[in-house]
Design a protein around this nucleic acid. Structure first.
Lengths: 341, 341
DNA sequence: TTGTAAGCGTTATCAA
DNA sequence: TTGATAACGCTTACAA
């Protein structure tokens, strides 16, 4: 049952060639005669050879591994991003070692050490925990996605444009007051651009607006309670005004929508809601919800393209590493559904 | 910048020991004097040694890699399962190579070949595509999750009990007619048990019931259209009866709920709904939805426990492989929310 | 077009 | 308690 594994040496002695020739059969087949190629091909079948990449890695130093550090997979944004990243295997051939790092810096550092011990060729970091300066010091090609990125290459959604799109849509829905709810975001985080975009439009068109920047909560129940409070406050403060609310993500937008629905049996005319992400909940909601959609597939592909370029560069005899990190920005797509006019 | 990597040889010559001793420092430190341990420890720091697991793998044959074949990550069930599996790293130390296989058998076979080429020690298969008989023939420890599992070990939710729980809850909600909607499930699939459990309760209590086994659709819009039709049919067939509907999953339950809500502005008294999975949508719905919850974290941990046991067994000098596949069954948890009495 | 031999960074086996 | 030496499976000069 547990027969020894067939190696190049076995094939070599079986066919009468040397190990080198067998190796060449795999890496540069055209350097063999067609006849000999066939001989070896036959032997592979006959001996039931299974390739072993560990030897190859050791000899060549190339693992074709890419490490991924992702905060979690219960948020749809992250799981879909991972999905799309994994799908690039078909294009680039890199395999992915995945760690979900509970946003604890120490644990994530341990994960990175582990990844490096396996000679990963590059790393995609979605987790915001470890500063980009520290990441850069690992001296491995790295691409960050939607996180602080001063010292590393990155791919981000054009959050500023997202803020602009959201505010513009609410403006066209002729709202009396525009409100943007968001967490206490660092101004180094790409997501901060949303706030700037939103504010810029409001000021440009002299629209009354209010920013509500507060960390709502970590659990669903905390979120719900927080948003309930928020709704009551807004209702008291702007009772008869038409309120255009830009929520930080679709989940929160849905919670608000449900609260309104349960209270009024419908979405009142005095509310317009727009979410962020275009995650499934936005169209599975009682009322399909308008949202600023991130192009997750595009982002994933750009990230791998960027990373792959850096990794390939490293394999050259005289690699020229990037002088400056490259930052790609992907436009969001405004999705108009039924919670805005 | 790109300084050569420090190896055991460097440490050996720096400290005056042999490579063997350095190796032993890592694998069996107690066999060195405390004094010498300290000497080596100092040298490691001084030379900034980073471990390289590739050499270790080649020499020992142990990769500590586990391969995962998962159908997709856009379904919450799968992404959460992956999340929980990844989390077992802290307990078992196995690293995960993840492939998302579009349910195409050929592609998944290619993935498996690739995984085996990296000498993975075991595999967790969530994808239903490849028959367990074929999987078993790869001769690597394998655990299946919620899929056909005749020839491989597996961990599944107790689907029969799930069907029983759902039907029982609808019975207690004093429904006149019980309806179970589901796809055209193979009777070898664990999910088939749900149907049996549901039917058994209906027959035991002589409740009128109807099974609607049809593949509704692949896209959200198809699903919606299908469920809309379904609702119209049920309304016509059982106009004044109290209908208790057990949907195949929470997403579908939510679609039905929204259709009813949009039609009647509320959940009519003549409808009771229960979903399956306890995914986020079930509590983020307009009306928090009753559901049969899968214990994903328990399943993930049991799967790794089972797999780890088999993998450790293999490392023994005289391993005794399993005679029969082991099948673990995890009880579902009934979650009563507001769509049932 | 093919072969020889060295080497990648560890671990395993003996022997001391 | 330590060391010498041979693996592990493949790639890569260099030589033929």
């Amino acid at each position: 049952m547990k027969s020894k594994k067939v190696t190049f040496a076995d094939i070599a002695s079986y066919t009468g060639f040397s190990k080198t020739t067998i190796s060449r059969y795999f890496n540069n087949p055209d350097s063999l005669t067609l006849e000999n190629q066939q001989k070896i091909a036959d032997a592979l079948v006959k001996l039931d050879y299974k390739e072993n990449k560990v030897g190859r890695i050791l000899a060549s130093g190339k693992t074709e591994f890419v490490g991924i550090i992702i905060p979690n997979l219960y948020m749809h944004y992250y799981s879909e991003m991972l999905n799309q990243i994994l799908a690039t295997y078909e294009t680039y051939g890199y395999k992915f070692l995945v760690f979900a790092g509970n946003a604890k810096a120490d644990i994530e550092r341990k994960y990175i050490e582990e990844l490096l011990a396996y000679n990963i060729e590059g790393m995609i970091v979605l987790s915001p925990t470890i500063p980009s300066k520290e990441l850069a010091s690992y001296n491995v090609p790295i691409v960050g996605i939607e996180r602080e990125d001063q010292y590393i290459s990155s791919v981000n959604t054009d959050n500023y444009m997202g803020g602009v799109q959201a505010a513009s849509l609410l403006r066209k829905s002729s709202c009396d007051i525009l409100i943007h709810v968001n967490g206490k975001i660092q101004d180094t985080s790409p997501a901060f651009g949303r706030i700037r975009g939103f504010v810029d439009i409001c000021e440009e068109y002299q629209l009354p607006y209010e920013l509500i920047l507060t960390d709502i909560g970590n659990t669903f129940d905390e979120n719900r309670a927080g948003i309930l409070q928020l709704e009551e406050r807004l209702e008291k403060k702007y009772p008869d005004k038409k309120k255009g609310i830009f929520m930080p993500n679709d989940t929160h937008a849905n919670v608000l929508l449900n609260i309104l629905f349960q209270k009024y049996g419908k979405l009142p005319d005095t509310y317009q809601i727009i979410g962020f992400d275009n995650s499934p909940i936005s169209r599975e909601a009682v009322i399909p919800t308008s949202t600023v959609g991130q192009q997750i597939s595009v982002i994933a592909n750009e990230a791998m393209k960027l990373l792959s370029a850096q990794m390939e560069e490293r394999k050259k005899r005289r690699p020229e590493p990037l002088k400056e990190p490259i930052h790609k920005v992907i436009a969001p797509i405004l999705i108009r559904r039924d919670t805005t006019a």
